[in-house]
């Protein structure tokens, strides 16, 4: 390896990343709790009642940021996957697998809140709306990734296979989204769009932003915790883990 690259990759080594992650976790956890409290306060108590949708619309303060996060996390996973495949860094694979469950959680949260919102708005728990359908497929992609990694025993192979799948997935997500939208217009499905309906008041936008930031902080904190567990599991035999466990 080239000398100038060594510094750059210093924190790519699990041994040096482990303590760094440990120091960052409390910070992000606190940020997540504070932002969540502020966001919920703004969204549930301060924001005005919607003229058309009443109080039911308030679920978008969870629904919209969760949908954003679920898509964003998949992109981050693909980024780590590409990094892992091209530079063969062990930490990248660990990051990819640490992010997947949180991504799946947000995708599920988005579907669930979507259904809760849909019942009063459309009178049905599920409508074949293009966004909702794409979100469901994204959820399947997450499940596929988690299942593939769980089925492979050798961690190096699991990382590489998972990385290939994440990259194939990220290329396919826009194609899937486009095709589902195409399908939706052909069949003239639901015409009520989720994000368009309430005209955005200033406080609503701020509330949504705070919630999104809270989800960000939560994701980072949880992913770091998970990556620490993975590092310990994988490096059980190495010297520094033994020393750490003694302390």
């Amino acid at each position: 390896m080239n000398h100038s690259l060594v510094n750059w990759f210093k924190f790519a080594s699990p041994a040096s990343f482990y303590p760094l992650a440990g120091r960052l976790i409390p910070f992000f956890t606190a940020a997540a709790v504070l932002l969540l409290a502020a966001g919920l306060w703004l969204g549930l108590l301060v924001a005005p009642t919607d003229a058309q949708q009443g109080e039911g619309y308030r679920i978008i303060f969870v629904h919209v940021p969760a949908s954003w996060m679920s898509m964003f996390i998949y992109c981050v996973m693909a980024f780590w996957a590409a990094l892992g495949l091209s530079f063969n860094t062990r930490l990248s694979g660990m990051m990819t697998s640490a992010l997947a469950p949180t991504g799946a959680l947000f995708a599920f949260l988005s579907l669930w809140t979507g259904a809760l919102w849909g019942k009063p708005m459309w009178g049905a728990w599920w409508v074949w709306d293009a966004r909702l359908t794409s979100q469901l497929i994204l959820f399947f992609l997450y499940l596929g990734f988690i299942a593939l990694q769980a089925a492979i025993d050798d961690p190096r192979r699991a990382d590489k296979a998972g990385a290939i799948l994440a990259l194939v997935g990220v290329v396919n997500v826009p194609i899937i989204y486009f095709s589902v939208q195409w399908w939706n217009t052909l069949h003239q499905g639901a015409s009520v769009s989720m994000t368009k309906a309430p005209s955005m008041a200033h406080t609503m936008l701020l509330g949504m932003l705070l919630m999104a930031l809270a989800f960000w902080a939560y994701t980072i904190a949880v992913a770091l915790m998970r990556v620490r567990c993975i590092i310990l599991e994988r490096e059980l035999t190495s010297e520094w883990v033994k020393k750490n466990a003694m302390e």
């Binding site: 497929i137 399947f140 992609l141 499940l143 596929g144 299942a147 593939l148 089925a151 492979i152 025993d153 296979a161 290939i164 799948l165 194939v168 997935g169 396919n172 194609i175 899937i176 486009f178 095709s179 589902v180 195409w182 399908w183």
Partner: peptide, 27 residues
């Protein structure tokens, strides 16, 4: 190729592949 030699590869293969088949199915 991804599921080659993996435990329960048959069911896993469907889980991985079917979502990716959606655009072909739709068009």
């Amino acid at each position: 190729a991804l599921t080659l030699g993996v435990r329960g590869s048959g069911a896993l293969l469907s889980l991985l592949i079917l979502p990716l088949y959606i655009p072909a199915l739709i068009f």
